[in-house]
C-alpha cells in the first residue's frame, strides 16, 4: 500500500473549505464594491480628486491616497493597501494560529503526533495548507482586478497585477509564518495571534509614519507593508528587493517553526 501523499495538508484543506469560501467572498465583495466606482470618482478633476486635494496631506500620505487618481493607485490604495490588506492579515492570523497552537490547545495535536507523522512533516504540511489558501485569496484578487480592468477603466497591465498580487501574498505570508513560528515555539494561540496580527499592524504604522516626510522615509524599509507596497508594484512593476524580504522572512519563520516544534514537549 502506497503512503498517501500529504495527508495532513489534505486534511487541513478539507476541514477549512468553509472558511476559505468565506474569505474568498469577502475579497471578491471588496473588489466588486471598490473597483467599479473608479470611473465616477477617479481622475484628477473628479470629486474624489478634489476631496483628496482638500484633505490634510499627512492624512493622505498615511492612507496612501497620493496616487488615487490613477487606476493603479486607486486599486492599490483602496484594496491591496487597505481593505484587502486587512482581510489577508486576518485570514493569515486565524489560519496560522489554528494550525499548531490552536490544535495543541484543543488537544488534537497530541493524537496526530502519536501517529506515523514527524513533527517536521506536520509543520511543513500545515504551513503549505495555509500558504495555499492565502495564495488562493491573492489569485482571486488578481483575477477580479483583471476582470474589472476594462469596465472600471483601471488601465493596469497583467504583469503589474501579478507583481502586486505577489507582494500582497508575501505580506500575508509574513503574518502567517510568524503566527506558525510563535505557535510552534509557545503552543499558545494568544501569543501566536499577537505576533501574527502585531507584525502587520506594526508594519502598517511604520509605513504610515515613514510616508509623512522624506526624513522618515527610511522607516518604510523596516516595514513588511513597506516592502510590499512602498514602490507601488501595480503602477511600476515588481519590487524584487521587497519581494525577497517578504518571502525570505517567511521562509526563515517556517524554519524556526520546524526547529521549535521538533525540540519541545507537546502540551497535553
Amino acid at each position: 500500500m502506497n503512503a498517501p501523499v500529504l495527508p495532513l495538508f489534505r486534511q487541513a484543506i478539507a476541514q477549512s473549505w468553509r472558511s476559505t469560501l468565506g474569505w474568498t467572498l469577502g475579497v471578491a465583495a471588496a473588489l466588486l464594491l471598490y473597483l467599479p466606482l473608479f470611473p465616477s470618482i477617479g481622475g484628477a478633476g473628479s470629486q474624489m480628486g478634489q476631496l483628496i486635494a482638500n484633505l490634510p496631506p499627512q492624512l493622505v500620505s498615511a492612507l496612501g491616497y497620493n496616487d488615487i487618481t490613477s487606476g493603479a493607485g486607486y486599486t492599490e490604495s483602496t484594496f491591496f493597501g487597505l481593505l484587502g490588506f486587512a482581510l489577508i492579515v486576518i485570514a493569515a492570523t486565524s489560519w496560522s494560529t489554528a494550525a499548531i497552537a490552536g490544535d495543541e490547545e484543543s488537544g488534537a495535536l497530541e493524537l496526530t503526533l502519536a501517529h506515523a507523522v514527524s513533527r517536521q512533516q506536520l509543520v511543513l504540511e500545515r504551513t503549505l495548507s495555509v500558504a495555499v489558501r492565502l495564495a488562493w485569496l491573492a489569485l482571486v484578487s488578481a483575477v477580479f482586478v483583471l476582470a474589472l480592468n476594462s469596465s472600471a477603466q483601471l488601465g493596469v497591465t497583467a504583469g503589474h497585477v501579478v507583481a502586486v498580487s505577489a507582494a500582497y501574498l508575501g505580506l500575508g505570508l509574513v503574518s502567517a509564518t510568524l503566527g506558525l513560528a510563535v505557535g510552534a515555539l509557545t503552543g499558545r494561540r494568544i501569543y501566536a495571534t499577537a505576533a501574527a496580527a502585531g507584525v502587520a499592524v506594526l508594519g502598517y504604522m511604520l509605513n504610515a509614519i515613514g510616508s509623512q516626510s522624506s526624513e522618515l522615509d527610511a522607516l518604510r524599509d523596516f516595514s513588511p507593508y513597506g516592502w510590499a507596497f512602498h514602490h507601488t508594484p501595480l503602477a511600476s512593476g515588481a519590487d524584487w528587493g521587497g519581494l525577497a524580504l517578504l518571502y525570505g522572512f517567511s521562509a526563515a519563520f517556517v524554519v524556526t517553526a520546524v526547529v521549535a516544534l521538533r525540540t519541545r514537549d507537546i502540551a497535553g
Partner: peptide, 12 residues
C-alpha cells in the same frame, strides 16, 4: 509510532 496504537488520557 506506526507500530503503536495510542489512546490519549484526555481525548478531545
Amino acid at each position: 509510532r506506526r507500530r503503536i496504537g495510542y489512546l490519549p488520557g484526555e481525548l478531545r
